[in-house]
Design a protein around this nucleic acid. Structure first.
Lengths: 172, 172
DNA sequence: AGGAGATCGTCTGTCCTGCAGACGATATCA
DNA sequence: TGATATCGTCTGCAGGACAGACGATCTCCT
């Protein structure tokens, strides 16, 4: 690139920050690949990877309301409505009237949903291992741990759900 | 798991995999926050965070063709067309006829584009530091490094661009 | 008790973007 | 030279995010 004289133009345009580690690109590329892998693994779920994420969040995090579930996953409320419609239509989840607040509906997985999710979790875990095959086991764990901490810290108000889930679901 | 008392309810439906570290959710949540921060920092660029990513990829990675640029960023070719239209309209980039292949157009940043990108890179770097303020400096570096490695490894065919860029742009 | 405001879920409409297909222009190979 | 492939652009389609409105319900304040 330095074959010709470009002395006056741009000798060092990025002296302070440069872009040594494009965090945004890494996140986007990795998430893209993850979505592709998971979509392939969850092709039989109503909305593919999205349906899996919803089912997993419902089961593992137990968000109190439908709105909290949507906020945690970054999905719009209006989309969550018909998303849950189809999941309920397949018998994976149930909308239960919250006795304490009749406006709210508690989204709970059915027994069938739990079974399906266990299978899907295994498949997704396999797909994730394939995705991260360039890293050692220790590095994978470190990446997962750092990502989880950064995301928990950065998420605006979604943490409450996770906290509630952890309190509700102690280690057996 | 106890082999005898698993009869009634659902004692342990996820014995094998569970979901101790929801990799997909962490990636999605962190990328969402990153996008929000970067969009706020790049509000004056034609397409916000997307425009910044394109400008950064054009400058730092120097993809050989417009199609390679689109593939690297995971953006459709048709979208890239009018995305570059607006960036060129603002004088940030230029479409140059590739003398070796007159079908292709080399996307290069203008001097103004380099200056703007340097400013944006600094802003983005600040936003990223704010995003990761829950991690120590060493942890941030580790996360960036692991993410970059995992993404480079997982990206299907985009690596060529990066390799080419590294070869073309050796350390001064 | 009663009313004002907020919250929850749903519906409607709009906009953006990714996707597939087709086209002209050009390069490569038989 | 002609057949095929690639590059960039344009067009139409579908899915999803976003904003707004609505009825039903809860909460708080008087």
């Amino acid at each position: 690139m330095s074959t010709t004289t470009e002395d006056a133009t741009a000798p060092a345009t990025e002296p302070t920050s440069a872009a040594p580690s494009p965090l945004g690109w890494s996140l986007a590329a990795l998430l893209r690949e993850w979505s592709a892998h998971v979509a392939a693994a969850c092709a039989d779920v109503p909305h593919g990877g999205r349906g899996y994420e919803v089912l997993a969040a419902v089961t593992h995090d137990a968000p109190p309301t439908q709105a909290a579930l949507a906020a945690r996953l970054g999905i719009d409320r209006t989309v969550m409505t018909y998303l849950l419609d189809e999941l309920a239509g397949c018998g994976l989840i149930e909308r239960q009237q919250d006795p304490a607040d009749r406006r709210a509906r508690r989204i709970v997985p059915t027994d069938h949903g739990r079974v399906v999710l266990a299978e899907l979790d295994a498949r997704v875990r396999t797909a994730e291992d394939a995705l991260l095959d360039g890293l050692t086991t220790a590095e994978r764990d470190a990446l997962r741990h750092l990502l989880a901490r950064a995301a928990d810290r950065a998420a605006p108000g979604d943490d409450r759900c996770a906290v509630v889930a952890r309190v509700v679901d102690p280690a057996p």
